[in-house]
Computed example of a mutant assay.
Amino acid sequence: MRPGLAVVRPEPGLSRTVARLRSDGADVIALPLFVAAPVAWSVPDATAYDALLVTSANAVRLAGSGLATLARLPVIAVGAESAAVARAAGLSVVVTGSGGVVEALSAAGDVGLERPLHLAGREHIDSGHPTVIVYASADVAADAATFADAVSGRIVLLHSVRAAERVAALLDEQREATGIVALSAKVLAAAGTGWAGAAAAAVPTDAALCALAIERAIDPAAGAGDKRP
């Protein structure tokens, strides 16, 4: 029997990831360990930038009234969801990347956008550009024994370093019954060792992570013993 999957990221990404996995026929459970919430932030001078870099739809959803001050800046969106939420908020999306931050910034450079302001969550992939934190994920209470029982025999999708650290802490000495797939090599490293299987997505996107999870669920032996690509 192929192992099931478990998603621990916060909403609204949680539902999107679960839907993507189920559309491929996966047995998946949702076990959110975090909830996203806005944080206070100071709006910088918009004239210092030529674009907004949005790597998470939550950065738009939770930015609050300060976003209006930056609304004249075109948006470099990483992922279709980020682009859709930005447009719904009245922003002008000029680049929609599908291969991660580096690919989106490269496409932005092709159209002359080289000084973006990155609106991000506290846990984010470094873009190399000025960054303002507009939201953060708070822990959702979880009982270690209950969580271990729920994910035993499954593969857990890890979307952030914080998720990797929390899952590792909850399972502690019970990792051998659970596999993991991570958004990046950095996220994978944060989870430590001892897993039934472990691998990182080649591209840091939800689509790539889901594809890897499906692949590992079909052929769990490919990731046995903490083998990493």
Rank of each mutant, 00 (worst) to 15 (best):
M1N: 14
M1V: 13
R2E: 08
P3T: 02
G4H: 00
V8H: 10
V8N: 12
R9S: 14
P12G: 06
S15Q: 15
A19H: 11
R20Y: 07
G25E: 00
V28C: 10
V28D: 03
I29L: 13
P32F: 07
F34V: 05
V35P: 13
V39S: 14
V39Q: 02
A40F: 05
W41K: 12
W41S: 07
S42D: 11
V43T: 14
A46I: 01
D50T: 06
A51K: 14
A51M: 11
A51I: 02
A51T: 06
A59H: 06
L62Q: 04
A63T: 15
A63W: 05
G64L: 07
T69A: 15
L70H: 07
A71D: 10
R72H: 15
L73S: 08
P74H: 01
V75Y: 04
I76S: 01
I76Q: 07
I76E: 02
G79L: 08
E81W: 00
S82W: 01
S82A: 15
V85G: 14
V85P: 08
A86F: 00
A89P: 10
G90A: 00
G90E: 06
L91F: 01
L91W: 03
S92E: 07
V93G: 10
V93I: 01
V94N: 00
T96Y: 05
G97I: 02
G97L: 06
G99I: 06
V101W: 11
V101K: 11
V102L: 07
V102F: 00
L105R: 08
S106G: 13
L113T: 03
L113H: 05
E114I: 10
R115E: 08
R115M: 05
P116I: 00
L117P: 12
L117N: 10
L117M: 03
L117R: 00
A120H: 05
I125V: 15
S127C: 04
G128V: 10
H129K: 02
H129G: 04
V132N: 01
Y135V: 12
A136W: 01
A136G: 13
A136N: 12
S137V: 01
A138R: 15
A138P: 09
D139N: 11
V140H: 10
V140K: 13
V140I: 13
A142Q: 09
A148S: 15
A148G: 03
A150C: 05
S152W: 01
L157T: 14
H159V: 08
V161M: 07
R162A: 04
A163I: 14
A163M: 12
A163T: 15
A164Q: 09
A164G: 10
A164K: 10
R166Y: 14
V167D: 04
L171M: 02
Q174S: 15
Q174A: 12
R175Y: 01
R175W: 00
E176S: 14
E176F: 02
A177H: 08
I180S: 03
I180C: 11
A182K: 04
S184W: 05
V187N: 09
G194W: 02
W195G: 13
A196T: 07
A198Q: 07
A200Q: 02
A200H: 12
T205R: 13
D206L: 08
L209D: 02
L209P: 06
C210A: 15
A211T: 15
L212W: 00
L212A: 02
E215W: 07
R216L: 14
R216E: 09
A221T: 10
A221D: 12
G223S: 03
G223D: 03
A224N: 09
D226G: 11
K227M: 01
R228P: 11
R228L: 14
